Amino acid sequence: MSLLERLNQDMKAAMKNKERENLSVIRMVKASLQNEGYKLGRQELTDDEAITVLSRELKQRKDSYREFKAAGRDDLADKLEFEIALIETYMPRQLTEEELESIVIETISETNASSKADMGKVMSAIMPKVKGKADGGRVNTLVLQHLS
């Protein structure tokens, strides 16, 4: 089942069960996916493109969550925490620290990287492998650890 089909199914269930918060988040996600499709000039997005859009939505909410928490706006932070949790259900399973570290080590050896100067080369090779499955910040930290 494609991501859009799953979203449509969940949207119908949220309507039937009168789950306003779920419905609102699902509609926002669907709108983002449709807007991306319009930008690319087609109806359907590939799974990779959809994951990219979901990752972007998730990152925006996580950034806003941190800012609201820092500003003491717990009411807004709680709303975003709910949205983050719901969006994460549509994301692929996240890699464990061990799995991610294994991919980092493998990619460093594939690219023959030896110093921090090779950081860009390693990151550009590794990010397609972990797209949607690991946060870029985590990947960056691990790559730095192994290159120093």
Results as ranks from 00 to 15, higher is better:
Leu45Cys: 01
Ser109Ile: 13
Asp74Thr: 14
Ser55Pro: 11
Lys39Leu: 09
Glu97Gly: 11
Val53Ile: 08
Ala77Lys: 12
Arg20Glu: 14
Met28Pro: 07
Lys79Trp: 09
Met91Asp: 07
Asn112Ser: 11
Glu97Leu: 12
Arg66Ile: 10
Asn112Gly: 11
Ala71Ile: 06
Gln60Cys: 06
Glu98Trp: 11
Ser32Met: 09
Ile108Pro: 03
Asn8Trp: 15
Met15Pro: 11
Ser114Ile: 15
Ser32Thr: 09
Arg73Tyr: 01
Pro92Tyr: 02
Gly72Arg: 03
Val29Asn: 00
Arg20Asn: 14
Ile108Asn: 01
Asn35Cys: 12
Val29Arg: 00
Gln34Glu: 12
Lys30Met: 07
Leu40Pro: 12
Ile51Arg: 06
Asp75Leu: 08
Asn112Leu: 12
Asp47Val: 02
Leu100Asp: 04
Glu21Leu: 14
Lys62Phe: 10
Lys39Met: 10
Leu100Phe: 02
Ser114Lys: 15
Asp48Arg: 05
Thr111Pro: 09
Glu106Ile: 11
Val25His: 05
Leu80Asp: 01
Asp63Lys: 05
Tyr90Gln: 00
Ile87Cys: 02
Gly37Leu: 00
Glu98Gln: 11
Tyr38Thr: 15
Glu21Ser: 14
Glu81Trp: 13
Met91Ala: 03
Val104Lys: 07
Glu98Leu: 04
Glu88Asp: 09
Glu36Ser: 13
Val25Trp: 06
Ile51His: 06
Glu67Met: 09
Ala71Thr: 01
Glu97Asp: 12
Asn8Lys: 11
Arg66Asn: 00
Leu86Arg: 04
Arg6Tyr: 09
Thr107Lys: 10
Glu44Ser: 12
Leu54Ser: 08
Ser32Arg: 15
Glu67Ser: 08
Glu83Arg: 05
Thr52Pro: 11
Leu33Thr: 01
Lys18Thr: 09
Tyr90Val: 03
Glu99Asp: 05
Ile84Asn: 00
Glu101Trp: 03
Glu110His: 14
Glu83Ser: 02
Leu40Gly: 01
Phe82Trp: 10
Ala113Pro: 04
Glu49Ile: 04
Arg93His: 04
Lys59Leu: 11
Leu95Glu: 04
Glu5His: 13
Asn22Ser: 07
Gly37Asp: 02
Arg20Pro: 12
Glu81Gln: 13
Arg56Gly: 07
Leu95Lys: 04
Lys16Ser: 14
Lys18Gly: 08
Lys18Ser: 10
Glu106Met: 12
Val29Leu: 07
Asp10Met: 12
Ala50Thr: 03
Thr111Arg: 08
Leu76Asp: 11
Gln60Phe: 00
Asp74His: 06
Arg56Cys: 08
Ala31Asn: 14
Glu110Trp: 15
Asp48His: 04
Tyr65Asp: 02
Glu81Cys: 02
Val25Glu: 13
Leu45Gly: 02
Lys79His: 10
Glu98Phe: 13
Val29Gly: 05
Ile26Tyr: 05
Val53Thr: 02
Asn17Cys: 13
Glu88Gly: 00
Pro92Gly: 04
Leu54Met: 03
Arg56Lys: 10
Arg73Phe: 00
Asp78Gln: 10
Glu21Lys: 14
Lys30Tyr: 06
Ala85Ser: 08
Leu4Val: 15
Arg56Ala: 10
Lys62Ser: 05
Ala50Trp: 07
Gly72Pro: 02
Gln94Val: 14
Arg61Trp: 08
Asp47Gly: 04
